[in-house]
Design a protein around this nucleic acid. Sequence first.
DNA 1: ACCCAGGGGCAAG
DNA 2: CTTGCCCATGGG
Length: 280
Amino acid sequence: MSARLAEVAAPDFDLALTLSCGQLFHWQRQGTGWVGAIGDKACYAEQRGDALFVTRGMEEIARRYFALDHPLAEIYATFPRDPAMDAALAACRGMRIVRQPHWECIASFITSAQKAVPHITQISHTLRTRFGKRIGDGPLFAYPTPDALAALEEDDLRACALGYRAKNLLRAARQIASGEVSLTAITKLDDDSAHRELMRLGGVGPKVANCALLFAFERLAAFPIDVWIERVLRQIYFAKKRRVTAARLRDYAAKYFGAYGGYAQQYLFHHARTSRPQKS
DNA sequence: ACCCAGGGGCAAG
DNA sequence: CTTGCCCATGGG
């Protein structure tokens, strides 16, 4: 096995945490490591201390995908110092915001609406195996392209347990396949314009647009607010206020967490979900 | 601005 | 086994 692996320096990195914190839905444990598709390439990855061992030939691709160039120490230094943030950092040190392929990320989060991680994982797997391109002769499939999905009918997607999300995913795929929305153009827009443009896609509202900005478009200030992070914000930062509007939460988060707000959000999010028994 | 439908997995009964 | 719960988006 080792002969087929190459070493990549990976200080300040926690592979398992990065793969399991709710930003990716298709990596699977295999032996002492993980297997998954990075775009249309298969990758095995295994962490041993400060080193990451990946499928030979995938070193550069993995380094970029796992964002091993993000300056974690510098990012942590921008985090606000308060008990909630300190606890989240202590629990999630080494978690990185990865660089996902644009469409794969957008589509995954369209299908994630009102869903728990296991089901999102199931949907991703079904869509890949039915409509994605098989990678080599192995068990992995790339995420289906906008063109592949655009050619389907809504019932084909409903058959993958998407429910009402089928219509949204189909619409988004067709908007991109037709050129009505250009993901390449979005990469060149400022954060607010990119957010607005993403929201033109079916099934993409403020939260999903922010997930895409953060996990795929390298906008590390993007701060997705879902019910979990909203609970954290309300309970910890707005404990005394009874009624707080969504706009107020959003503006507060943008100011309070700053340029790397997306990192802060993901740490608070994962910590909230894993440290409490359930709910709150 | 508020209200609620909606699909399927899963926890609770 | 059956019922109730979960929740982002979009349309009323």
